[in-house]
Design a protein around this nucleic acid. Sequence first.
DNA 1: AAAAAGAGTGACCAAATAGTCATTATTCAC
DNA 2: GTGAATAATGACTATTTGGTCACTCTTTTT
Lengths: 247, 247
Amino acid sequence: MATRDGTRSAGADTPPGAAGSRPGRPGGRREAQRRERLKELEDAALRLFLERGLDTVTIDDITQAAGVAKGTFYRYFDDKAALVDALLEPVRRELLAGMEACGQALVEARDVEAMFDAYRAVAAVIASALLQYPGVVRLYLQESRGPAAGARTQVVELSRLVARHAVEITEKAHTHGLLRPIRPAVSGLAVVGAVERLLLAVLSEEAIGNPLELPDALTTLVLDGLRLPPEGSRPRRRKLDGGPKRP
Amino acid sequence: MATRDGTRSAGADTPPGAAGSRPGRPGGRREAQRRERLKELEDAALRLFLERGLDTVTIDDITQAAGVAKGTFYRYFDDKAALVDALLEPVRRELLAGMEACGQALVEARDVEAMFDAYRAVAAVIASALLQYPGVVRLYLQESRGPAAGARTQVVELSRLVARHAVEITEKAHTHGLLRPIRPAVSGLAVVGAVERLLLAVLSEEAIGNPLELPDALTTLVLDGLRLPPEGSRPRRRKLDGGPKRP
DNA sequence: AAAAAGAGTGACCAAATAGTCATTATTCAC
DNA sequence: GTGAATAATGACTATTTGGTCACTCTTTTT
């Protein structure tokens, strides 16, 4: 791996028309290249994290995979934990915003349909995060249950936030008397567990059928359970409209 | 990684005659001390694994915590993966046996009550494993979602077995037409996810109320869902008896 | 064009790590 | 008790790792 003649093997692609171009305005070249390096580092790291786990991936692995020198890493991140935190950031923001919105909607909900809508809104947020940052979501799913130490701290922290919000949301639904008398700490966590397990299956490409059917199936499961109701005991639940297709 | 003798996961797997010599006398001093060392090593390792994660715990850490020299470790295990495998062994055996029994019971089930009983039997198996090996179960929960590499391989493998059995069990329940038309791969995994998340909460001492109420709550959740049924639309489900069982 | 500022590099270091093995201690069979 | 068999030890080697820094290269400013 040592290139002693100074030429870089996998060098960062030289931008076209590099030499002698005019010094741009602030926010020009420097900024662009910086973002590019950052993305290279993050992408390489994420890929390695998913392949081999947070703890076993070294800084050397990351920089080598990203095609930069080791010192460069420390120009962008304090350490591995900081990189993980940066990776997590957009997903965390989106997720928390979505869950808070859901809590708010639930506070105002007065009937089952409104409750339904709130859950569906959260599902949409999750789906959005999934589509935008599938790798990060998978990283969260893979690492969130380990001990909160080192690089994993932030992932576990996010997991705790998710759990707390889920319980709060369930509590709010409870205050409307819409749910069975089960402790929100129990039912909320159960739902989180079910959702996370299914997400992991989708992202790990376990055979699970059409992912687009998941929200519908999950909603049925959560709200109405697994058992087939006795014939005609209750009107058939209306078909859920198209699912997460909303742009 | 050189294994001089061909023994695979040495140590726990083969208490008698590990190194191809004559079996130690059962009940002899050697045997007793061997078991004691083994337990010291496993206990220390498990504690460290739970505190800091599989990957970050070193052999030095383990031997130091167990109060033995480093070389001793390699007399009992080929490497860290073998130790994890040994830790997992009893839980894996109990779990698989329980799930297979449940599958069998479900094949023969002809009504909801029998199905109920099958689920309850699995719950009993899980509870038993929980009481006997809480640390190992927690290790499983913490590590089972990471990449299947190195010391984590066996944990992930067990997780896959659990998932497969859960789906199979759900498929069998389906053949009786007892369940809503949701793909077993979906509903089975959802139940596994819910159960595992609740177990983690209990073992991590998250505030979740009385653990003894869990099976009841979980069964209600799984079978009947979260939504409160409209008044009088269906007879109130009988209280689940957690302890006393009908002969 | 030249200087200043910023970014990238990789050799280097000290600490840690998996696994080995000659030596010492303990237990067993007699 | 005695010698053989087995177990335990921990110093040792090989390699790896996180992090630094003097230096070079690139971009921006003057």
